[in-house]
Simulated scan of single mutants.
Amino acid sequence: MRVEEAIKRESIREGILRSLRNLSSAVERNVQEHPYLLDYAREVREARLGVAENYSQWMSRARDVLESRGVEVHFARNARRAREIAGEIVGSGKVVVKAKSMVSEEIHLREHLERLGNEVWETDLGELIVQLANEKPMHMVIPALHYSEGEVAEILKKIGVTGKSAEELAEGVRRFMREKFLKADVGISGCNAFSAESGRIFLIENEGNIRLSTTLPKTYIALVSIDKILPNDELCLKSVFVQSAFFGTFPPAYINVNERIEGQEMHVILIDNGRSEARFREQLSCVKCGRCQLECPVFQLAGNIWGGDVYGGPMGMVWSAITAQIPENVFLSTLCGKCMEVCPMEIDMPSMLREMKRSIVQGEDKL
């Protein structure tokens, strides 16, 4: 889908504005009732940027602590190598359940594993809908916000799920996924924050699907992009608090703190994919709350179609430049500054977008 087509699709605009209305007041209330969240955000920003100054050192620490706990550690310089490693671990002919993960979208992992002959299922309801519709997530936290209840009902018929209400549809998906969880050979998750102190994987969710994806299968793969590394457990917890609160849901429904469990084969793939050489290192402090996306006037019109192959919106423009190349439609940015205004990390995205425009004009295609 092109941006011009996305702008004509009213359901995208309606879904984004509906989400904004529902969540905007919640963010304001979270900060008013829990002012310490602003302090947490500053601490997390400082810690993330500090780690970014020497990723090699922190990856070495991560490897040491993980291996001491019986976890197999792999390092992927780019998306291709990350796919290869995951493919080697999974093999073929397996049932794979995958938690919602933007880094897995970034490396196009599901498609790769399917090409190897595996049955791969997204377990987040929104991600499952997007998978069945053969589209990409419209928002990093609310991937299917652009579909109406009627459209969702038609999409879910592809897996035999029917119902007359959202509740019945959700119950049908729950039954469908329970069967997949019980049959799964491999579970895959991303990572909201990783502790170099303990080797723990911190994950937040609201459906309970992540804990089933990561504990039931005999093999568990955690995809950890190196920007998620933090020095200790306390900062990881503060990071997931900030991410949740500035999206609009606080406290989080579920916080998972994953370690290798007895009898389980656990792998961690540390993924660089442009992060260690990123020109705009400030973006590496991003907690991916998705707030800037909902508030952006261009995103409100075109959604995640405005951006790169995976990431969209203001933050997505910069992440696309870091992990792939500068999206040419960066010129649609209004540079209004709303993204920086609402960002808990106070990332100066307007300056980055301006620099990206300059780079394209001067013939550069990657930052």
Rank of each mutant, 00 (worst) to 15 (best):
H267G: 03
V268N: 08
V268A: 04
V268W: 13
I269V: 15
L270V: 09
I271W: 11
I271Y: 10
D272I: 15
N273Y: 09
G274M: 09
G274V: 07
S276L: 09
E277C: 02
E277V: 12
E277Y: 05
E277G: 00
A278S: 09
R279D: 10
F280D: 05
R281K: 13
R281M: 11
E282N: 10
Q283M: 14
L284S: 07
L284R: 06
C286E: 08
C286I: 13
K288E: 14
C289N: 11
G290W: 05
G290Q: 01
R291I: 03
C292M: 08
Q293P: 01
Q293Y: 08
L294G: 01
E295T: 11
C296E: 08
C296N: 05
P297M: 08
V298Q: 04
Q300T: 08
L301E: 09
A302Y: 10
A302M: 11
G303L: 12
G303Y: 13
N304D: 04
G307Y: 04
G308M: 03
G308S: 04
G308Q: 04
D309T: 15
D309H: 15
V310Q: 03
Y311Q: 00
G313E: 07
G313Y: 05
G316S: 14
G316N: 10
M317C: 07
M317V: 07
M317K: 02
V318Q: 02
V318W: 00
S320M: 08
S320P: 05
S320G: 13
A321M: 12
A324Y: 13
A324I: 10
Q325R: 13
Q325M: 08
I326V: 13
P327M: 13
